[in-house]
Amino acid sequence: MIFSPGHVYGLTGLLLFIVGLAGLILCAQLLRKILAVNIMASGVFLFLVTIAHGNGVLIDPVPHAMVLTGIVVSVSSTAVALALAGRVQDMAHCRDLLKKKARGEG
């Protein structure tokens, strides 16, 4: 089997997806998890673009539309995730402060 550029892109996409998945599962920090999800998304988009390329003769516009939409979705979800992560971070910070305070007084 000969690797065409399409195959390379496609496999890279899948690899990215897997890397992202691993990051999501294995990283403890929220920010890293969010980034991992973004990597996954990028992988999928890359894969889609590869599909659009097809056999290289006719470029299919549909996957492009899908990727564009997907990017929009991804951006917004990242935004939501970051906002939430910030809140979680704040709360954890507050909690730590409270704990320390309590310990200090105790």
Partner: peptide, 13 residues
Amino acid sequence: LLVSLLGSLSFLL
């Protein structure tokens, strides 16, 4: 959010 992102990205793939 993270879980559903994982889910929907799998779906998308």
